[in-house]
């Protein structure tokens, strides 16, 4: 009986959290228009969310591209198809690795920081203080961070893919001697602007929404103690990584499944 009760309690609290999350998202979206005269808030958040994530994105993109070039070459050379290296590198980056890996890195680098920041604001009662001053913390604190995340994510993913393609180029053409013309021309003939690149951008926008939503919500919903904030931060990274990978499957099935 107690097991049943604890199961019911867990289920109820799960759905309560889900509901609070959606209410928060609705509040943020409803309050977006109040952000227009205060774009500076968004700009500052783009700096802390996007620009500060640049280093990790650039370095990982470069190395992921280089590894792809190396692995792809070793596999393709058996079939005498090493000219297709550009296609392999570009398609895997643009379709999958660019959006997904940069979303995972983004969740770890920026999502956790967002949650910790907002959680600490809550723990030190800054959010309550704002409410006392009749300032809506959702509009003043959460919405700019959410928008900044949604803006930054596709840009970061595009940078990741572009740097990765260059990394694959350095390894494939520079080190392994794949023909330069074949690398680019095969890539250009196989990668489609709409099917591949636009869909990759759509993916990364969706990931950006989901990751920042989870991060902002976990921060706002954190138990206002140091332990609660640390658990909320962990949950942000875990949940948003899982959400990114799960959603990636759904989106891939929708986009490329035909």
């Amino acid at each position: 009986m107690e097991y049943l009760q604890s199961l019911g309690h867990k289920g109820l609290s799960f759905f309560q959290r889900l509901g609070r999350g959606h209410i928060l998202l609705a509040n943020i979206v409803m309050g977006l228009h109040t952000l227009l005269p205060r774009l500076r808030l968004v700009l500052i958040q783009v700096f802390s969310v996007g620009v500060l994530s640049l280093i990790i994105i650039l370095v990982s993109g470069l190395f992921v591209g280089m590894v792809l070039g190396l692995q792809g070459y070793n596999t393709l050379v058996d079939f005498g198809a090493e000219e297709s290296l550009g296609v392999v590198v570009a398609l895997s980056l643009v379709r999958e690795l660019g959006p997904v890996v940069s979303a995972l890195l983004f969740a770890g680098r920026a999502g956790s920081a967002l949650t910790a920041e907002i959680g600490l604001m809550k723990a030190t009662e800054q959010l309550s203080a704002m409410e006392m001053m009749a300032v809506d913390p959702v509009r003043r604190v959460l919405a700019p961070r959410f928008v900044a995340g949604v803006i930054s994510m596709p840009l970061l993913a595009a940078i990741f893919s572009a740097v990765g393609v260059l990394g694959g180029y350095f390894v494939g053409v520079g080190l392994l001697g794949v023909d330069e013309g074949a690398y680019w021309s095969q890539m250009q003939s196989s990668v489609d602007l709409y099917d591949d690149i636009y869909n990759g951008v759509i993916k990364s926008i969706v990931f950006g929404i989901v990751v920042t939503w989870i991060a902002v919500f976990e921060g706002q919903d954190a138990i206002p103690t140091s332990e609660g904030v640390s658990r909320a931060t962990t949950r942000t990274v875990v949940h948003s990584s899982l959400a990114v990978l799960g959603l990636d499957f759904v989106l891939t099935a929708l986009m490329f499944g035909d």
């Binding site: 783009v46 700096f47 996007g50 620009v51 640049l54 570009a90 643009v94 803006i151 930054s152 596709p154 840009l155 970061l156 595009a158 940078i159 893919s161 572009a162 740097v163 393609v165 680019w184 890539m187 250009q188 990668v191 489609d192 602007l193 591949d196 690149i197 951008v201």
Partner: peptide
């Protein structure tokens, strides 16, 4: 950052696709 992201998108569109 924004310019770099746009440039990356542009490069993907022109050079890769």
């Amino acid at each position: 950052f924004v310019a770099g992201g746009m440039a990356a998108l542009f490069m993907l569109a022109m050079q890769v696709s």
